[in-house]
Design a protein around this nucleic acid. Structure first.
Ligand SMILES: [Mn+2]
Ligand SMILES: [Mn+2]
Ligand SMILES: [Mn+2]
Ligand SMILES: [Mn+2]
Lengths: 154, 154
DNA sequence: TCCTAAAGTTAGCCATGGCTAATCTTCTAT
DNA sequence: ATAGAAGATTAGCCATGGCTAACTTTAGGA
């Protein structure tokens, strides 16, 4: 999976190959890429959960308007969610979360709310807080989330 | 480019089609998708700028190890950066930033540093701060960035 | 000088996640 | 009861951004 760039010899270029700082930076970028893979799943299960709460059911057309994408895009993403065990569904019927999906939704909603609360606490308006939280939530480590919560306590 | 979902008629399901909250949420998701499009460009120009500073030149092999990807991946992404006017290069030679690329690098570095400083200010360790900043930096609006700076002043 | 290892490139594979166009199903209102 | 609208699906397109394998070029050291 990884390349073994740990030759101490002929480091043509200074301060690059596999230095501790380099590796740490690479880890950061890899974490970002990993977060992007989970992102759609997280946003979808959270939205589906909200729609079931608020509307009684989660339909592709509503997911599409909330996500700002077309219905075929929703259908395609729902197929992945089903494949990966987060939802169950039958053709032309509304969508249900599996236990796995519902659990993930709760975790995501919790995370989301902490971030929004933290941004509001910093003095931002509600719209900006919601707007930015939608992206930030996927890149906040547990440590940082805890720091946000701690700041809210004070 | 956009679909016109502003039918006030027959909203079969309550509280969904084009309601103000729904549209605001959609705007948030759209902003996240847009951020993801600029992300690679931003991270690459910032890294290239750093490598030129620290090593005297930016070579694909070093970009690869810092980004945690393979060299062919770097080459492909560099082709896009060149196509879009952020870098210039000749085959088998190291990479240079255009004015556009260098300006963007400076903006990104500035942003990056503010976020790291803010996370450190919250009490996080340096590694976590750098790690999380790598993702967060692409999802912080100007308003939120300003709020971070304000918090640092105090 | 020239051989070889490292660096760079190319080709080609795959998954993701957007989109439009066209079709099919469901549901509602007459 | 049924026609038409709204919703759902399918098919097929495209760009992105990972990867491996194979090849070419460059450059350092014997
Ligand atoms: Mn992101
Ligand atoms: Mn989100
Ligand atoms: Mn969310
Ligand atoms: Mn980044």
């Amino acid at each position: 999976m990884e390349s073994n760039n740990d030759k101490p010899s002929t480091p043509t270029n200074a301060g690059s190959t596999g230095s501790p700082g380099t590796q740490a930076q690479a880890k950061g970028f890899q974490a970002v890429r990993k977060a992007h893979q989970s992102e759609i799943v997280e946003d979808y299960v959270e939205l589906i959960s909200d729609l079931i709460e608020q509307c009684g059911e989660a339909r592709p057309v509503d997911i599409a308007s909330h996500m700002g994408v077309t219905q075929p895009t929703v259908v395609k993403n729902l197929a992945r969610l089903q494949r990966d065990g987060f939802i169950t569904r039958e053709k032309y019927r509304s969508i249900f979360l599996t236990k796995t999906g519902a659990d993930l939704a709760n975790i995501c909603r919790h995370r989301h709310r902490i971030i929004v609360a933290f941004l509001l606490h910093l003095g931002l308006d509600a719209e900006t807080a919601e707007h930015d939280a939608e992206g930030l939530e996927h890149h906040v480590s547990n440590k940082t989330l805890a720091a946000f919560e701690a700041a809210l306590e004070k």
